[in-house]
Each structure stands twice: as C-alpha cells, then as structure tokens.
C-alpha cells in the first residue's frame, strides 16, 4: 500500500557532500558501495547520480588493481 516514495529532490550522497570526485585511496567509503562479495552496487541501489557513479566505478577499479579492495571476496 504505502510504497516507499522516491524523493526526486534528494541528491546522491556525493552531491550532498559536495564532493568533486572520489578518491580511490578512500577504501573505507568505497567499501560501502560494494556488496559483501565485492561487486559494485547498481546506481539504483547506491542512489548515485550518473557523474558520481562513474567516478565511483573508476575509483573502485583502481582500488582493486592496487589490492586495496578485492575483486572477489
């Protein structure tokens, strides 16, 4: 009945923080955007805007390359 309404005015978490881009070295925050397996959360799940989701994707892939985050956990 009362489906959770999606608030169109709310911004993505990085927009709210006013973050320009996401640092691949910040593994603690990047980890929150991955599943327990280490997969990336979808844009729908993470609530990120297109720009920041791109940035997150790139950062996580860099972090994986440098063995800061797992490819598969």
């Amino acid at each position: 009945m009362s489906k959770k309404q999606f608030n169109k005015t709310s911004k993505c978490r990085f927009c709210r923080m006013g973050a320009d881009d996401i640092d691949y070295k910040d593994t603690q925050n990047l980890q929150k955007l991955t599943t327990s397996q280490g997969k990336l959360f979808s844009r729908k799940r993470s609530g990120n805007c297109a720009r920041h989701q791109h940035s997150v994707k790139l950062s996580i892939k860099r972090a994986r390359f440098m063995a800061l985050l797992p490819f598969v956990a």
Partner: peptide, 15 residues
C-alpha cells in the same frame, strides 16, 4: 567532472 584523467586507462580497463 573527473579531475583525475585516466592516465592508466589501459591498466584499469583490463581490470
């Protein structure tokens, strides 16, 4: 936008 330009595009793409 992205201030970090992918210098290592090759590397990350392979990932």
């Amino acid at each position: 936008l992205l201030t970090e330009e992918v210098v290592s595009a090759k590397v990350t793409d392979n990932v």
